[in-house]
């Protein structure tokens, strides 16, 4: 089952979601922040946004704080879904 990070009532009411789905772009490991027709990929390795558009500034700091607080849990869910490309794998395999 896709993992959805539980959010505060206000963030949910604004339509925000944070997901790790069962089929994602595998590399690099990330969570997807979704609101309406827009999505932001946030890297679990580098802990920053992967794409310049849409603007990361549109994502509320409260949401980013929540992601940081639940970082280990998100890594755990990514690693379970994508064991062949875990967050803490080295960039290149031997």
């Amino acid at each position: 089952m896709a993992y959805s990070l539980p959010l505060s009532i206000s963030l949910k009411a604004q339509g925000w979601k944070v997901k790790i789905r069962d089929r994602e772009r595998v590399e690099p490991p990330h969570v997807t922040i979704i609101r309406g027709t827009q999505a932001w990929r946030w890297s679990l390795r580098q802990r920053h946004f992967l794409d310049a558009t849409p603007s990361p500034r549109q994502v509320p700091s409260e949401l980013l704080q929540l992601i940081s607080e639940n970082y280990d849990l998100l890594v755990q869910h990514w690693d379970a879904k994508y064991p062949e490309n875990k967050v803490n794998n080295s960039e290149s395999e031997a």
């Binding site: 089952m1 896709a2 997901k19 789905r21 069962d22 089929r23 994602e24 772009r25 997807t32």
Partner: peptide
């Protein structure tokens, strides 16, 4: 229960 990102497709 399975979800696929459209972006990945």
């Amino acid at each position: 229960n399975y979800e696929a990102s459209v972006e990945s497709l």
